[in-house]
């Protein structure tokens, strides 16, 4: 669009400034805090503190729950994406609205509403009681956190998967059938591999916010279940140990970077 690189640079300059102030500077501050102690001297202790049992436990639990949520989101989103991609005209509008509409509401509000649903004397148990069925204890368990993660992040899995599914030419599927593949073989050898880019971006968009969340675990997990996100949040807001909080953030960032490198590599492979 802008042939003249100088002109392009001028127009892009506000974004560079924005990126510098709001991305690079905070990142540099996190790194500085993460690798120093109160006196300003270099230390690796903040990073190493991840090995303390309670920190390691919260990281492992966060990984476990976010991976589980990502898998559940994928298993729910893929069939739905296929239904959406198949019915290009008819029911698509309705289903899209059903999944997009909740996103117009505030994230905390939506999570809060799950609290009232899942509470021991909440809506779901009320209905079960009315039906003379045994009540369930979900609130303040890891299961409640997973429900919250899946509910909140599912649209981010559906959209990229739906996009990559709807890009597949019907005749590519027909060609596979024509060459002798049954519907299972067609799915495994053609449809699924062709949607890998969509799956990867969906996984990234669900896994990263799920891994770092502290709001969902605070609201649905009570104060008993601490994820790494909660630990970091507490370091900043309760104990005011910015050095330790930053150190743990850096460790968490490593997992995010690993995820992004894997997705970038597979996208590159896909382009070849």
């Amino acid at each position: 669009m802008f042939r003249d690189p100088k002109k392009a640079g001028t127009i892009a300059s506000p974004y560079f400034v924005w990126a510098l102030i709001f991305i690079l500077v905070p990142l540099a501050m996190i790194l500085w805090y993460g690798f120093t102690d109160d006196t300003g001297a270099f230390t690796a202790a903040n990073i190493a503190s991840i090995l303390q049992p309670e920190h390691a436990k919260s990281l492992l639990l966060a990984l476990e729950l976010s991976i589980l949520s990502t898998v559940i989101c994928f298993l729910l989103a893929y069939p739905l994406g296929m239904i959406l991609a198949k019915n290009k005209v008819s029911s698509q509008g309705i289903i899209t609205t059903i999944f997009i509409l909740p996103m117009w509401m505030n994230f905390l509000l939506r999570t809060f509403s799950w609290m009232t649903l899942l509470e021991n004397h909440g809506v779901i148990n009320g209905i079960l009681e009315f039906l003379h069925l045994p009540g369930i204890h979900v609130i303040n368990t890891p299961a409640a956190i997973v429900i919250g993660m899946v509910y909140n992040f599912l649209p981010f899995m559906i959209m990229p998967i739906y996009n990559s599914l709807s890009k597949i030419d019907d005749n590519v599927i027909n060609a596979a059938r024509d060459l002798g593949a049954n519907s299972v073989q067609t799915f495994l050898r053609v449809t699924l591999p062709l949607t890998v880019p969509g799956i990867i971006s969906g996984v990234t968009m669900v896994f990263i916010p799920a891994l770092t969340t502290f709001a969902i675990s605070t609201m649905l997990g009570g104060s008993k279940i601490l994820l790494i996100g909660n630990v970091i949040e507490q370091e900043f807001t309760l104990t005011y140990d910015w050095h330790l909080g930053s150190g743990l953030s850096i460790v968490l960032m490593v997992f995010i970077v690993i995820n992004m490198v894997v997705s970038a590599l597979s996208e590159k492979k896909d382009e070849q």
């Binding site: 590519v172 027909n174 060609a175 596979a176 060459l179 890998v196 896909d270």
Partner: peptide, 29 residues
């Protein structure tokens, strides 16, 4: 079903499997 018929189709817009190389495309059937 199409996969059980003794005939093959060449489609208008080629409909090749873009995630496979040429040899894998040809070897598919």
């Amino acid at each position: 079903a199409p996969n059980k018929r003794q005939l093959n189709t060449v489609f208008q817009k080629y409909a090749l499997f873009t995630h496979m190389d040429i040899a894998d495309n040809i070897a598919f059937g």
